[in-house]
Simulated assay, not measured.
Amino acid sequence: MTARFSGQKAKGETAGLPTVDSRSVHERVYDEIRIGLSQGLFAQGQTLTTRGLAATFGTSEMPVREAIRRLVAEKYIVQLGNRSFQVPLLDREAFQDVISVRLLLEGHAAASAARKAGPEDIARLREVNAEMRRALDNRDAQQTLRLNEEFHFMVYGITGSETLLDTIETLWSRSGPYLASVVAIDGELSVFHKAEQMHDAIIAAIESGNSAQAETALVADISFAVEWYEEKRS
């Protein structure tokens, strides 16, 4: 399972990377690129270079090359040349295929969370959604994307299923770049204002222990953003 970080470093930032062996740096770079993909910090079709990523993460190119090699093998990114790579462009059919599986699995996860959540889980979900509301008020797109992802994976983490979480993470890494397109189109972040409100409905359903309502609310949250995006790009 990819280690989930509390946030992403700004481009060129070097602070926060401790002195560790090359394997640890490789894993950190791999994890942060995967998380960046799932959070929508990398756009569809965006070109990546080992030099640029090394500068972003404040490391040498060697661990970046190792991370990139894994990501290419796992089809999260594609190779264009010796030093150039690209975030894949999903055609409509491929995108809908990923989303249809996400709806099934994430709806199931929300239903399971409703059966297992305790008061502390509900409190944390409310706290993260409140942080997302503040990020939206500040028009902080990157923080909004991070907190949106954190909210969802907090819900899925309640299930206690590592297999389910791993699979959902993979799907987010494949579909996440479309969120960057949503932000580019939706300068006012209206889609995420709606998502923050829909998160309240998810929390209420989980708190009440209503599995069917939790699944419905979670599916509605994903579907609204996807339908908005599909309409705008058509």
Rank of each mutant, 00 (worst) to 15 (best):
E27C: 04
Q44C: 11
L164C: 03
E230F: 07
Q46P: 01
S100N: 11
E61K: 13
G118H: 01
R69T: 14
R134I: 15
F5A: 09
A117T: 02
A73W: 04
R92G: 12
L164S: 02
L53R: 04
Y229F: 14
A94D: 11
L125K: 04
E150T: 13
D121E: 07
D186I: 06
H108A: 10
M132I: 01
A117L: 03
N148S: 06
A67P: 00
I99Y: 11
I202T: 08
E106P: 02
I33P: 02
A109H: 04
I122C: 00
A3I: 11
A217M: 07
L89H: 10
L80T: 02
G45E: 02
R124C: 01
A54R: 09
A123G: 00
E162W: 07
A10P: 02
S173A: 13
I222Y: 12
F95R: 13
F153A: 03
F57S: 00
N148T: 04
F153N: 00
L218M: 12
R134D: 13
F224M: 10
V128G: 03
V128I: 14
A141F: 11
T49N: 03
F192R: 10
T144K: 03
K9A: 10
P119S: 08
S223N: 15
F42C: 04
S161A: 06
D200S: 12
L80F: 03
L90G: 05
R233K: 15
Q96T: 10
L80A: 05
D97F: 10
V155I: 11
P63Q: 01
Q39K: 11
S208A: 15
A111R: 11
K232L: 15
Q39N: 07
R4D: 08
E215A: 15
R133F: 10
L89D: 10
R83I: 05
L17T: 15
K9L: 11
Q143N: 09
L218E: 08
N129V: 05
R134S: 14
I33G: 05
T170Y: 05
E127C: 02
K116P: 00
F85R: 00
I206Q: 00
V29E: 09
A184R: 12
R146C: 09
A201K: 12
D140C: 09
A201D: 13
N138G: 13
E207N: 01
R92Q: 12
R174K: 10
A217W: 00
L218F: 10
V182W: 00
R34P: 01
R23Y: 08
A205Q: 06
S112D: 08
V29P: 03
A10E: 07
T170C: 00
A184C: 08
T56F: 01
G209L: 05
V72K: 09
A3R: 12
E231S: 14
E66K: 14
H108V: 07
I203D: 06
H193C: 01
S181D: 13
A217N: 04
A225C: 07
Q79N: 00
G160Q: 07
R102S: 04
